[in-house]
Every structure is written in structure tokens, then in C-alpha cells.
């Protein structure tokens, strides 16, 4: 292969980036085949699964007329709410306990824990984003909701939620390698956080003294922003993307530190 002179040095950024892209691409394809196989609709399950969840929740909430303190359409409320839950819940869930079963990948020196995490996060992000987009279009086509008033705000809010999902995911994912307690606590945590996450209520409909407490949770800001973009003219949105970005950043750093720590202590069988 490279008998004419030395290889590109390993330290060059462009070279490392090319390797990392290749590795993440390979991991994504591997993950898709492992998870969905080649049976029936195969990788389409990636998009259909979150859609089934969201449609189910939309139907239940519509049937119960569970709109909280607002006259807006239930479908728009449910689609924005549940799509937001899926972002910050599915991303970490995919990463909790994802190191141990993938330890054999460490035999390939170019594959790092970060790459395993990145491939799973990308896949999950594409999955829930597609589900959100497709359902919005379908529901708009059949007249259940109107298209967003400000699509940029929707995308911005959603990206902030995705960042939160990635940061939280990297943190709990790497931490779960250190202690099995993380796996035990993550499941109840996500259930307890769901009612507080702003998906099933508008912050404006809460009593003011409770509002401040709920707004400590970063995902509440993201959901409010997504909804502001969708039907902002119909309610008063409460969010601060600066605060959310700060929390996201802190968790991103914590996540990276924890990944580094986990990488140093790996012992593949």
C-alpha cells in the first residue's frame, strides 16, 4: 500500500476527521442492520416507531380533550410535546449501558467510545426529527393542525432539545459504565421527568410560583420555543435559550470528561 514514503501523520486534524467520519458512518450502518435486520420494513422502523408513539399520544390526548388552559388544537400541542419528549428521552436511553455490549469494537483502534455514542445519537436524532416532520406534514394535510408560524424557531428549539439530549446522553451513558446504579435510576427518572418536562402543559398555565421551579429544567425551555414557533400567536411562551445553552454546555463538558474517564478504564474481554 504505502511503499512510497510515509503515511499522512496521524496527528493531522483533517486526517483524524476523515477517519472519524468513516468510523461513525460504519457504526451507523452496523447499528441499523443489528437493530432492524433485513426483515419486513427493515430500517424504516427507525422512523415508524416514534411515529406510532406520537400518533398514539395525540389520539389519547384528543379523546380526553386534555388541553391545559388553552384553546389551541390538541394535535399541534401533542405533536410538539411528544416529539420533544422523544428527543431528550430516547437519546440518553440509547446510550445508557451501550459501552459494555460494544466493547468488542474497541479491538479496532480507530473506534472510540465517542464514536459509538455519536453514531447512536445521530441515528436517534434523525429518527425523531423525521417522525416529527412527517407527522406535522400529515396532520397539516388532513387539517388537524396548521403549519408552523415561524419554522426557524421550531428548528432552533428542536436543535436545542437535541443538544440537551446529546449532552445528557453522553453524560449518563458514560457514567453508566462506572456504576450500574445509573441504569437503575435512569428509567424511573425519565418517567418522573416526563410530567415536569413541559410536554403536557404550557408554562403560562402554571401558577407563577411553580413556573420558576419548572423552568429550571432545560427541556421546558426547548418545548416552549418549539411551540412558540408553531402557534406562538395563541399563547404566551416562557423560555430563555441562553439559560438552556448554559445548562447544555455544562452537561456537554461533564459528558466529555466522563467519556474520557470511561475510555481510560476499558477492559474488553
Amino acid at each position: 500500500m504505502d511503499e512510497n514514503g510515509p503515511e499522512v501523520p496521524r496527528t493531522s486534524f483533517a486526517h483524524s476527521f476523515a477517519i472519524q467520519r468513516r468510523v461513525i458512518h460504519a457504526l451507523i450502518l452496523r447499528e441499523v442492520i443489528t437493530r432492524f435486520g433485513r426483515h419486513n420494513i427493515g430500517f424504516l422502523w427507525l422512523f415508524v416507531e416514534p411515529m406510532i408513539f406520537t400518533v398514539g399520544v395525540t389520539l389519547i390526548w384528543s379523546a380526553l380533550k386534555a388541553v391545559h388552559g388553552s384553546s389551541l388544537t390538541i394535535a399541534a400541542f401533542a405533536v410538539t410535546g411528544y416529539s420533544s419528549v422523544l428527543v431528550w428521552r430516547n437519546m440518553p436511553s440509547r446510550l445508557v449501558d451501550s459501552i459494555e455490549p460494544n466493547l468488542s469494537l474497541m479491538y479496532h483502534r480507530n473506534v472510540k467510545i465517542f464514536d459509538i455514542f455519536a453514531s447512536r445519537l445521530l441515528l436517534e436524532g434523525v429518527s425523531v426529527a423525521t417522525s416529527f416532520l412527517v407527522l406535522t406534514i400529515i396532520f397539516a394535510a388532513i387539517g388537524w393542525l396548521s403549519l408552523p408560524e415561524d419554522p426557524l424557531k421550531v428548528v432552533g428549539g428542536w436543535l436545542m432539545l437535541a443538544w440537551w439530549g446529546c449532552a445528557l446522553g453522553m453524560f449518563v451513558g458514560a457514567l453508566s459504565h462506572r456504576s450500574e446504579l445509573v441504569d437503575k435510576f435512569w428509567h424511573p427518572m425519565q418517567y418522573l421527568l416526563f410530567p415536569l418536562s413541559g410536554s403536557a402543559f404550557l408554562v403560562d398555565s402554571l401558577p407563577p410560583e411553580f413556573r420558576d421551579w419548572v423552568l429550571l429544567l432545560p427541556m421546558v425551555h426547548g418545548v416552549e420555543c418549539v411551540r412558540d414557533g408553531f402557534f406562538g400567536s395563541e399563547f404566551v411562551a416562557h423560555y430563555d435559550l441562553g439559560y438552556m445553552a448554559t445548562v447544555n454546555l455544562v452537561f456537554t463538558l461533564l459528558g466529555l470528561v466522563e467519556i474520557r474517564r470511561a475510555s481510560r478504564n476499558l477492559v474488553p474481554a
Binding site: 468513516r22 460504519a26 450502518l29 452496523r30 442492520i33 468488542s104 469494537l105 479491538y107 479496532h108
Partner: peptide, 22 residues
């Protein structure tokens, strides 16, 4: 060493994965 493989995938799938990585 065969521990570097995903055992639920076929030999060919594993081969393709490794080719992509390298």
C-alpha cells in the same frame, strides 16, 4: 482474534463493517 466481531451479524456484514472502518 474473533472477539472483534458482532456475532448476530453475518461474516460478510462484519467484513463490510471492518472494511468501512479501515
Amino acid at each position: 482474534f474473533s472477539g472483534a466481531f458482532q456475532h448476530s451479524l453475518t461474516g460478510l456484514d462484519n467484513l463490510k463493517f471492518i472494511c468501512r472502518v479501515y
